[in-house]
Write a protein that binds this DNA or RNA. Structure first.
Lengths: 187, 187
DNA sequence: CGCCGAGTTGAACTGAATCAAGAAACGTGG
DNA sequence: CCACGTTTCTTGATTCAGTTCAACTCGGCG
């Protein structure tokens, strides 16, 4: 899916706004393993993943690697609190596959928000979309058993369940790798 | 805090926009126990709580009452997925205290979004604010013990910890009432 | 070939849920 | 203002889902 189509799925941008948006968007290919945000660093770019897979993560008190969120094809990828509030990120971000990305810088995006009401609207709708995604995960995590959470993942993000390493998926679901392994093998 | 000041804390609205916003906002006092949204009903109003306390909740498969979110003074109160996507709510909403509220209807708000770029921006910033709140809770719930979650609540929303009934707080934190009672009494 | 990270399997342990029963607080009507 | 019933909270005993720790398997790659 083209960046353009992704945007149009939220709001119908006037031609001029779309052109400005495309001018400000930069395409880039990066290999698996690329770390594009460190903990403590402020996230300056909003990415769109045309093709690929990424995750945000951190190390907890016990030094264990914990996946916070996955990002895959045809979605934005961003450290939400860091980018939108321009403050240091709590998380690292890295690519799990070779990926084709687009990005726009915070500065440029702000300029576009100022210039085009329609792009501001796109921003609003994008935020509410992310919000409902997070609310969905919160409910899954909070009130479901390990098995149910895994089923939630398969249903909601089937691609991730098969493309990401087991350990990452487990911590994303808030369970241990061993437990997930047992679930997969059918108890 | 006045509605006006709440809005200004996000974005500096031009006078005309603020006047339109205030014209569209309706003030209302409602008593404790008022149910203002049913499961399956579409949330048509975005509330601002000048003073009071409310919660969203549902009944799980076992018929147990589960609190999803609390809303208190100087914050908006809304069934996020229902209001912003205008689809049936998964939750009930009710007041836990006598409250003074303002509200604006979905229709009116859309009109204001269309008319004033500045109000669209307010909407965007409000969404990102809610988003970071939910992300914060998700992290607390997913990776912390029952005791730590309660401490998170006390720190982040101290008023709620003292004003809401124990059973509601417990289900909000994803633990049982008994466990919370034990935590409060210091294990 | 041998190493290394990723995944699997087993056994013991534990934090929190469940089940059950009683105490305290709350509000409503006489 | 008290009595009664209802709801909210506490406390104890038992159970269980999922963690932890440890050892082992498998597949890829230098």
């Amino acid at each position: 899916m083209k960046l353009q189509d992704f945007i149009q799925s939220f709001v119908d941008l006037p031609k001029e706004a779309m052109i400005d948006m495309q001018k400000a968007s930069i395409s880039i290919d990066l290999p698996k393993g690329t770390k594009f945000l460190n903990q403590g660093q402020t996230c300056k770019k909003l990415f769109y993943i045309k093709k690929g897979l990424a995750r945000s993560y951190y190390y907890n008190e016990k030094g264990k690697d914990v996946t916070v969120w996955f990002f895959s094809d045809n979605n934005v990828m961003v450290s939400v609190e860091s980018f939108f509030q321009q403050k240091p990120s709590l998380y690292y971000m890295e690519l799990l596959e070779d990926s084709r990305l687009y990005y726009i810088t915070y500065q440029d995006l702000q300029k576009l928000f100022d210039k085009h009401h329609s792009i501001e609207r796109f921003g609003r709708l994008l935020s509410t979309q992310l919000l409902t995604d997070v609310v969905g995960k919160l409910n899954a995590i909070q009130f479901q058993t390990a098995k149910e959470r895994y089923q939630f993942l398969i249903q909601k993000y089937p691609d991730i369940a098969y493309r990401a390493p087991l350990g990452h998926i487990a911590s994303y679901l808030g369970i241990t790798q061993e437990t997930l392994s047992r679930i997969r093998s059918g108890n």
